[in-house]
Amino acid sequence: MFNNNYKEIKNPTIGFYKEKGSKFISYLFPVYSEEDVKEKLVKIKKLEHAARHHCYAYIINSDKSEQRANDDGEPSSTAGKPILGQIQSNNLTNTLIIVARYFGGTKLGVPGLIRSYKKAASDAISSGIILKKTIKEEYKVDFKFPQINNVMRLIKENELEVVSTNFKTDCTLIFTVPKNKADNIVCKFKNNHKLKLKYLKTI
């Protein structure tokens, strides 16, 4: 069954975990592109420049289509993967977590590293406000001015959210619709051959 909702964190947060002298400082950020991720990584690496590792994971897009985990020199799958696992287990997207590790002099071993990065990531998530959002599709409809009443009736009857309008001789209106209702709405607009409907993006 299609899930029409997704979750993301409203605000940046900070978490912390300590294991045998090693300190794990976690930073959570809402992100919406790889450029956002790169910008936040540069910021934290500068802020925590003395840390031995800056491990991270992120998930982007309402359909969670972009996912990545990075161990930054830690043994394979002991850092990025457990961080990513916490994002996944909380059903979050548009979320980046970076964990800066300060070595405490005692090696933690694979189980200790996995536990530490997991708990640091979890602490950052628990400090945030989780928002539940609806997956929507955005469309543009082009039409001549005499069709404006027909268009606005469709908008009102189907409770569509208007993003922008341009009402001149050649009119344009951009609206959003919940993804699970999109097919039905598209059919209604296409039944009027004087309206030209174009899909723009999923948000």
Results as ranks from 00 to 15, higher is better:
Leu160Gln: 01
Ile83Asn: 01
Asp142Thr: 11
Gly21Pro: 14
Tyr117Ile: 05
Ala57Val: 02
Ile135Tyr: 01
Ala51Ile: 06
Lys188Glu: 10
Glu159Gly: 08
Tyr139Gly: 01
Asn158Tyr: 07
Asp123Ser: 14
Phe145Arg: 08
Ile148Gln: 13
Glu161Pro: 02
Glu137Phe: 07
Glu39Cys: 12
Asn90Glu: 08
Tyr56Pro: 12
Met1Glu: 09
Asn3His: 11
Tyr17Lys: 06
Ser33Ala: 08
Ala79Val: 11
Asn91Thr: 05
Ser22Trp: 04
Pro178His: 04
Lys156Ser: 15
Gly21Leu: 13
Leu154Arg: 00
Ala69Gln: 13
Lys179Phe: 07
Leu92Ala: 00
Lys133His: 12
Val37Asn: 03
Ala121Ile: 01
Phe2Met: 13
Val110Pro: 00
Lys196Phe: 13
Lys10Phe: 12
Asn180Val: 11
Lys133Arg: 15
Cys55Arg: 02
Met1Gly: 13
Asn11Tyr: 06
Ile14Asn: 14
Tyr6Asp: 04
Phe167Trp: 10
Leu41Phe: 07
Asp183Ser: 15
Ser116Pro: 00
Asp72Leu: 10
Tyr102His: 11
Ile130Ala: 01
Asn191Arg: 14
Tyr32His: 15
Ser76His: 13
Asn166Gly: 09
Leu41Ser: 04
Ile87His: 01
Ser76Trp: 03
Pro146Glu: 13
Ile174Phe: 07
Leu84Arg: 02
Pro178Gln: 02
Met152Gly: 08
Phe167Asp: 08
Thr172Lys: 12
Phe2His: 09
Thr176Ala: 10
Lys107Cys: 10
Asn191Trp: 10
Leu200Ala: 07
Lys38Val: 07
Phe103Gln: 08
Ser122Arg: 13
Asp142Cys: 12
Tyr117Asn: 06
Gly85Thr: 03
Leu41Asn: 04
Lys198Val: 08
Ile9Phe: 06
Lys140Val: 09
Ala124His: 02
Glu161Asp: 15
Lys18Leu: 10
Val110Phe: 13
Asn191Thr: 10
Cys187Lys: 15
Tyr32Cys: 06
Asp123Thr: 10
Pro178Asn: 03
Lys144Ser: 12
Lys168Pro: 05
Val37Tyr: 03
Tyr117Leu: 07
Glu48Gln: 11
Gly109Gln: 03
Glu161Lys: 13
Ser26Glu: 01
Asp183Trp: 04
Ser116Phe: 05
Thr95Cys: 08
Val141Phe: 02
Gly15Gln: 10
Leu173Phe: 01
Ile97Gln: 02
Gln67Leu: 14
Gly104Val: 09
Ala100Phe: 06
Lys201Ser: 12
Glu35Ile: 12
Tyr199Ser: 00
Met1Lys: 12
Ala182Thr: 10
Gln86Trp: 02
Lys81Gly: 02
Lys140Glu: 15
Lys190Gly: 01
Ser122Gln: 15
Ala120Asn: 04
Ile87Gln: 03
Val42Cys: 07
Lys45Trp: 11
